[in-house]
């Protein structure tokens, strides 16, 4: 090693031991999280998806003002309506962060720089779920703006019917939606397939379960225990009781944990080509 270092000096290569990372140091998780977060937004597709989250929040606020009855101009109407497009776009970003490694084949690089797929997946999960934080902040800030503008236009008193207690509920709803995106990506590992799977989950299965609950009495009591999308919407209304928490845990286990375990199990064993 010493002779080699000397050779490198002789070759005029900069040898700066203080700056050179130690080869025996494992790549820390915070670095994986940082890089994975960056990877979600450093492509044109990623940037547009991010921009569309902001754009959609403003547009939905505008839609509420334009079409909702004036009496509905309350803070909660705005925040929950804004949360809707967010819980569609953010999971797509999450799914793509996993599927791009296969569809774009960047996994060949990712998994040779960090040869532990489990750690990369944990990094992705932490990075993507953390996106719920700024998204929640945006929902409440844009919602407040919409509420002020709405009441100014309608001439009614501005109704602030939400307090800080609503924040963790919306945050959790978005975080779980992001997880659902990750689960679709992990299980399917193909960009188009994962997005279709997510749409089927939120726009086909969930309405079907809702229809079933409407028409079949016996299913009405079952739905809260099996319909995750129903629970994500319920979260936006806040103030869960203990039974609702149990229902949320059950639906999350069914739709998030179970497929995630299966997806990870196959992902770790799969071949990266």
């Amino acid at each position: 090693m010493t002779t080699q270092t000397l050779d490198r000096v002789a070759e005029g290569r900069p040898v700066t031991p203080t700056q050179e990372p130690v080869r025996t140091a494992r790549i820390p998780m915070r670095r994986i999280v940082g890089v994975e977060l960056r990877k979600s937004f450093d492509t044109r597709a990623g940037l547009w998806l991010l921009a569309s989250v902001g754009l959609a929040s403003v547009l939905t606020s505008g839609a509420v003002i334009a079409w909702a009855p004036d009496d509905d101009f309350t803070y909660s109407t705005f925040t929950t309506t804004i949360a809707f497009p967010m819980s569609v776009i953010l999971p797509i970003i999450a799914a793509l962060s996993v599927t791009a490694e296969w569809t774009q084949r960047s996994g060949l690089t990712t998994f040779t720089i960090v040869p532990h797929r489990g750690r990369i997946m944990l990094g992705k999960a932490l990075a993507l779920v953390s996106v719920a934080l700024p998204a929640t902040a945006a929902a409440f800030v844009v919602g407040a703006g919409g509420n002020v503008v709405g009441s100014w236009i309608s001439g009614n008193e501005t109704v602030w019917d939400q307090d800080l207690a609503a924040v963790p509920y919306l945050l959790l709803s978005l975080a779980l939606a992001l997880m659902m995106g990750l689960v679709c990506g992990t299980l399917i590992r193909n960009s188009a397939g994962a997005i279709v799977a997510f749409f089927v989950f939120s726009f086909v299965i969930s309405p079907l379960l809702g229809f079933l609950a409407m028409t079949q009495d016996w299913f009405r009591d079952v739905q809260p225990w099996v319909d995750l999308d129903y629970q994500l919407t319920a979260l936006l209304r806040g103030s869960f009781d203990s039974e609702q928490w149990s229902q949320l845990a059950a639906t999350s286990g069914l739709w998030l944990l179970l497929p995630l375990v299966v997806g990870l199990w196959t992902l770790v064993r799969s071949e990266v080509k």
Binding site: P21, R23, T24, A25, R26, I27, K39, T43, R44, A45, G46, A100, Q104, R105, S106, G107, L108, T109, T112, I113, V114, P115
Partner: peptide
């Protein structure tokens, strides 16, 4: 622990995110 510092790998130059 940090394979990139010990092993340089190039398996397929086209296997990168095109964007």
């Amino acid at each position: 622990p940090n394979p990139g510092l010990e092993v340089g790998v190039l398996l397929d130059a086209s296997a990168q995110h095109a964007g």
